[in-house]
Structure formats: C-alpha cells, structure tokens
Design a protein around this nucleic acid. Sequence first.
DNA 1: TATAATTGTGTAAAATTTACACATTCATAA
DNA 2: TTATGAATGTGTAAATTTTACACAATTATA
Lengths: 246, 246
Amino acid sequence: MSAEDLSKQSANIKTLQAIQSEVQNTNKIALSVDCVIFGFDESKLKVLLIRSDLKKYLGKWSLLGDLVFPNEDLDAAAYRILKQRTGLSDVYLEQVHTFGNVSRHPAGRVVTVAYCSLINVQHHKLNIFDNELHWHDIKTVTGLAFDHQQIFDTCFMQLQKRVQEHPLGFNLLPKKFSLRDLQNLYEAILDIKMDRRNFRKKFFSMDFLIDLKEMEQDVPHRPGKLYKFNYEKYEKKKKKLVGIDF
Amino acid sequence: MSAEDLSKQSANIKTLQAIQSEVQNTNKIALSVDCVIFGFDESKLKVLLIRSDLKKYLGKWSLLGDLVFPNEDLDAAAYRILKQRTGLSDVYLEQVHTFGNVSRHPAGRVVTVAYCSLINVQHHKLNIFDNELHWHDIKTVTGLAFDHQQIFDTCFMQLQKRVQEHPLGFNLLPKKFSLRDLQNLYEAILDIKMDRRNFRKKFFSMDFLIDLKEMEQDVPHRPGKLYKFNYEKYEKKKKKLVGIDF
DNA sequence: TATAATTGTGTAAAATTTACACATTCATAA
DNA sequence: TTATGAATGTGTAAATTTTACACAATTATA
C-alpha cells in the first residue's frame, strides 16, 4: 500500500464522535409509520381508515399512523399503532415500502414507512368505538389525505401479489372457514371470478387444509365443510424457486 | 352525531403548527440510505463494498451509504450515492427494505433505507479508483459491518426472487449478449444449473429477445449469436396475475 | 313435500415443463 | 492441412399442470 493510499485510508476513518456530531447536524428528518389495515367482511375486502386530524385535509380519510419514538424499533412502532387502534396484538404485519419525498407532508420533512396488516374482522368488531375510525370497502377508497392514496395503492398491489405466493389470506378469515369463504376471499382480493371446482382442486392438491369434520351453521342452504390451515406442514414444505416467468 | 362525538372530533383536529412542533420534539432519528450494488463479471455475481470508515468496524467491509439530506428525496439520495461511487447515472435502482432497530448503529439512532442496484461492470470498470472500494464475489460476503450482512442477505434474496419475475437481469449484462451469457447470469444469481436447451426454449418462447444478426468475437470456440432485450414489447405484454401457488 | 340454493365431485383436452443426444461451427494445436 | 476440443444450435416424447365443463346430493325454507 502506498503512502498516499495510507493517508487516504486514515482520512476515511472517522471516530464515533465525528459521526455522532454529523448525525446531530443532519438530523432534520422526522420518521413515521403508516399502517394499511385490511379486513374481510361480508365477502368484501375492507381497509381501516381514520379521519385526517389535520385542518388542511379536514374531511378526508387517512391511514393510521404516528411518529416513531426515538427509542422504539421500527416494527414496534407499527405494532403499537395497530394495538392502539384495534386492540389486537399477534396480528399479521409486514413492512411494505418507505415513502420519503421532501414535500409529502405539509408539516415538514416526514419520511414514512408503510406497513400492511391483515386482521380478522369477526374477532374484534367490538374494538372500533371511535366514530372517526371506519372500515371502507377497498373499491370506494379514493382521494385519501397526504400521499396516503399512493401508499394504499402500493400496499394493495403488494397484497394481491403476495396472497398468491404465500398463505397470508388465512389471517383475514376466522380460524374455521369453508372453501366458499376462502374462494370469496381470493375473488375479493384479486377482483376476479374463479372456477369453483378448479379452486377446490388447487387447494386440496396443495394439501395444507385440515378437514375439521364440522359443518357450517345457520346458512340458508346446504352447509359446507369447515377447514383450518395447516401452518406446520406449510413451514416444512415451503417452495424455494418458482421458475423464470415474466 | 352526538355532542360527545363532536367534541372528540374537534379535539382530534390538530393545527399544522401543533404537528410541526410535535415533529420537532420527536425528531431524534437520523435517516440514511444504503446501496447494495450488484455487478456480474467473469460469470460471477459481485457486490460492491467499501471498507468501513468507523473505528469500531475497522477492517470490515460495509455497504455504500450516506445520510439523507433534509431537502433531498429518498430516491434521490440513493441515486446520489450511486453516482458518487460509480460515476454512473441511469442505473437500475429499487428500494428494498427499511432497517430501523434502535441499536443497529453505534453512533445513535439511524434508520436506514436499503436500495438494490444492478450495474454493468464492463461499462465502468474504470470508475473504481479508490482502493477502499472493491467488488466481492457474493459467495464470499460474510461478516459485514453494522447490520449490513442482514441488509445484504435481504437484498440478495429479493434479487433472486425478482429476477425470475421481471427482466432485471439484463441490467447486469452488456447491451449485446449471448444466450450463454444470459444463462450464466441466471445460474450465478440463483446458484443452480439449468438445462441449456430448455433455457433457450423458455426465452425464445417469451419472444422478448431481438436477434442482432451478430456473432460473439474472440471466443476460443464456436461463437454464439448476440441478442438484445426488447423492452418495448415487454412493457406492452406485462403479466398481470400469476396464479395461486405456495 | 316441492323448491331454491349451494355443496361436492371427475374427466378429457390443452398447455406447459421436463429429460435428453447429436450434428455443426470455429479456434487451436499437431 | 488436418485433427481435436469446446461450445453452439436444434426437436421430440413423456410427464405434469391447467383449464373447461355438468349433474347428483344436501339442507333450509316456503
């Protein structure tokens, strides 16, 4: 290594203190988390929205979000918001994308990390006391506050993609569900109609459904069998490669 | 709406000033960007790393990153780093994931947004003057500084997935490439061997390769035909749905 | 007891994926 | 000049997966 290289190298070595002061000086960006919370009810996909608490967007709906605390892990902030708003813990939650355009928030520089959450509406219909909080049919979601429409669109598209590759959907259903429930769910998320026999064949051939030997109750027609998803078996079998296809 | 609801609603309405001060007070988090820059050379997938500039991690390799400026879009920060380090603009760059554990950085709370970039090594072999900057075979990447190993692993896995679903790979090849180059690339990224005839059949049936009517030069064996990727055709034909499969 | 609604089931055709071998072309070395 | 080595270019048959499609059985209700 030449003398020049050596001096260059030592010039590049920064002390922790130097970086700390650099971090302080550049520290003009606030960080928030926004949650796109999906639910499934009456065979429709819903999203939980709140009325904007900002005058500029008065009357508009927005996602559930909050600033991240300085001593709080990012994922923990998302869980906190979810817990605060729905009363639920142990829910499916996944980071989707970070939105960081300079002018995305009127109050100044706020970079936000978007999370997608899937919850079972039946299990906590109770927890929405707040009039400002409302389940919206995803087909009617337009004109959200801030850049929340873009965030919602991104999360919804990601959900459409991931629900086909991973068993996420079951988080939106009750523990016991019929194949009709499952098909309704996929049809609602993907906004398509599917062939009933081929849909059943597909899921039976995957062999991840456990027949609970129970039937639906209180349906105005022939009751269907109830199933639950076999997570243990799925975890063992997980696919590695899919194959080139675009 | 009841009186109680109304008062609750107005209590929820915040002024811009209130939020601004809230943002100021909570503003103790620094934001950075880290780039995982992939290249393809000598039939091997490489990643561009730099020696850590932090005493704690002296001698360790780390990703290329920097703090985001207060008045800089997030994506712009990633492009800036890429331009600074490789001299290249107009490169493939995609946000992958944000890492925000409280203790991930020794200098304090720094949340980092990871980007994945694919560049053509042939086109700018020149631009690496800096001894501290080096292309590493991805198979030898271990023990990176900070949480950069985790960031690298995440980006690499995402690359393996996305390269199968989208025509990203061509960003790593020269404009003109042979089918052997293309197969070597996929084999390097996915770390598998593929059947040569089926690989060719697959790509020909997709019908996105333009035969340039040119042959390889200076190869010590029968030269292969050269192709380029037909982006216009791909953009028109893009797949929508894939089908349930997990 | 008849009707309406939905469940549960199989098969044949089409499309896709997989496994596999040999003649051709060019550079290089004898 | 010729032989050799190394990689290109090409097709088919079998297996698997996907698609399209119809009718009998079950339950609640009128």
